[in-house]
Design a protein around this nucleic acid. Structure first.
Length: 495
RNA sequence: GGCGCGGUAGCCAAGUGGUAAGGCAGAGGUCUGCAAAACCUCUAUCGUGAGUUCGAUUCUCACCCGCGCCUCCA
């Protein structure tokens, strides 16, 4: 079965066929770097990450472009307030965004591009639109897009033009537009605001033009897929389509993927409700990056995900279960080969592929793996998982982890980075005991742990349980769990 | 008001016209020096009402509730 995706443009789940050269050209709206990213932002980026990882797993080549919006009203306002340049202001948050991506195991797209590095390209597009009389220049030097010249406007968000006029709020400083629904391509400079000198005059770009300019520069006038949060569907993506297609006469993006907003504890995330969290907040509260990623990735991207602390804890337990299972497979097993296990592994791999082929159904995808875990554990308890079964079962786990990326335990290191950041830049910010413990565990090397484990085993062999339990307790304080196996060996893992 | 999405066990969350995956939590049990891990058993008639159908949680309609977009919030 081929990959099928819900295409906002058609309103249907459709086969997402690759282009002739097997290269997927995709553009995903990245962050506006005006502040630290919150978990809502990262739901979108994790969802896109799931897509890109699955495309790669399916043998596709990728050219994935992500933009960094580093100029907009908020940025201009805040940088002005801080009396620094736009770039000085955004640098810090751009860097923080990359750090957060790493924290959550989000792969870097092939190309990451900044809006402010593409001002001439944007001006070029606008000039082209103006030459076709699709864009017009207002008295103050701003440029607007003449929606009347693009009849299919609204095809993405299924909006009726008449209603846009009815319901829309009117921005008072846009009186020089011919029609209310026309949107700004270029904004004339205002005193004290960042501005650029270009072929079409001085000023700064409108919001939408950057994505058209950068997408077409790096992917061509028509490409495979464009993704973003659901809020971007209108007006942002609608306007991108209008600008681009009016100019080139070609279909801009064949597929449009929109990720639904998440809820936090059943409510829309907002600062006023006190349920607004950045990724860093959660880590400092003691939650592991892998838990956050697992929770965000686990619900299909088109479903409203209810992000809760219960869910975060559940995710942590789930990840632990998978990690423990993997350790078990990596440990000693009776020799031989078991056909049921071989079949289970194969069937699970097929089921996982099918689940993601079906519009990236990550819930079913992980469900299939957990089914394998239970069955294999049952068999292993009965001694029916053999040494030759480990490889196929581990392959199923690996197939899962190529998408979810939670099995390698990098949580301690990652938490340590966040804790260090908070101590450095946010003195006074609450750091939970759990976060500190996790961060401390990062400094605890495998060699140190192995040494203590050795002492534990020796004490146990001598039936000095008091001593062996004490060592186990000491390790537990550092977040290390010991498991005494029946054969006298010990397995350890970070909790 | 316009357009759209959803309401499934304590929580999260799949799914199907023929009586419901998975995870977490809980209870009991097995194993174990104790732990840990693991396994087994138990816990849902799928928002409400009506209709279509041999049969609906799955289709249709109405209603209730939640959520999203309607000019710059992922």
């Amino acid at each position: 079965m081929p990959l099928c995706l819900f295409n906002t443009l058609s309103g249907q789940v459709q086969e997402f066929a690759p282009s002739d050269d097997n290269l997927i050209r995709m553009y995903c709206c990245g962050p506006t770097v005006y502040d630290y990213g919150h978990i809502g932002n990262f739901r979108t980026f994790v969802a896109v990450d799931v897509l890109r990882r699955f495309l790669k797993q399916s043998g596709r080549k990728l050219r994935h472009v992500m933009n960094i919006t580093d100029v907009d009203d908020r940025i201009i306002e805040r940088s002005a307030a801080a009396a620094i340049t736009v770039r000085q202001y955004t640098e810090k948050y751009e860097q923080a965004f990359f750090e957060d991506m790493e924290l959550l195991g989000i792969e870097r797209p092939e190309l990451i591009v900044r809006a402010t590095d593409h001002i001439p390209e944007m001006a070029g597009l606008i000039a082209g639109l103006a030459a076709k009389d699709i864009a017009y220049r207002a008295d103050d030097g701003s440029y607007y897009f003449r929606i009347a010249r693009f009849p299919s406007y609204g095809k993405l968000s299924k909006k009726d033009l008449a209603h846009i006029e009815d319901g829309a709020r009117v921005d008072s400083d846009r009186f020089d537009k011919e029609e209310i629904r026309d949107f700004a391509l270029w904004k004339a400079p205002k005193p004290g605001e960042a501005k650029w000198q270009t072929a079409i005059g001085e000023g700064r770009p409108g919001w939408h033009i950057e994505c058209s300019a950068m997408a077409m520069k790096y992917l061509g006038p028509g490409f495979d897929l464009h993704a973003g949060g659901e809020d971007l569907m209108f007006p942002h993506h609608e306007n991108e389509i209008a600008q681009s297609e009016a100019l080139t006469g070609q279909v801009f993006a064949r597929f449009w993927m929109h990720v639904r907003f998440l809820l936090v504890e059943g409510q829309k995330m907002s600062k006023s409700l006190g349920n607004f969290y950045t990724v860093r907040d959660l880590v400092l509260m003691g939650h592991k990056p892998s838990s956050i990623r697992f929770l965000l990735a686990g619900a299909p991207y088109r479903k409203q995900l209810n992000f809760t602390f219960d869910g975060l804890n559940a995710a942590a337990s789930s990840v632990e279960r998978l990690r423990t299972f993997r350790l078990r497979l990596q440990g000693p097993l009776p020799p031989g080969r078991s056909e049921p296990m071989q079949r289970l592994a194969g069937n699970t791999q097929t089921a996982m592929r099918r689940a993601l082929d079906d519009d990236l159904n990550t819930a079913e995808f992980s469900g299939a793996l957990f089914e394998l875990v239970r069955q294999a554990n049952t068999a292993a308890d009965a001694g029916e998982v053999r040494s030759e079964d480990a490889a196929p079962l581990l392959a199923a786990l690996a197939q899962f982890d190529e998408i979810f990326d939670v099995l390698e335990d990098g949580d301690a290191q990652r938490a340590a980075v966040v804790v260090a950041w908070a101590q450095r830049e946010r003195p006074g910010m609450a750091i939970s005991a759990a976060a500190e413990r996790l961060a401390r565990a990062a400094a605890f090397t495998d060699e140190q742990i192995e040494a203590l484990v050795g002492a534990h085993v020796a004490a146990r062999k001598a039936r000095n349980f008091k001593e062996s339990d004490a060592i186990r307790g000491r390790l537990a304080e550092q977040g290390i769990v010991l498991e005494n196996m029946k054969d006298g060996t010990v397995r350890w893992r970070r909790k």
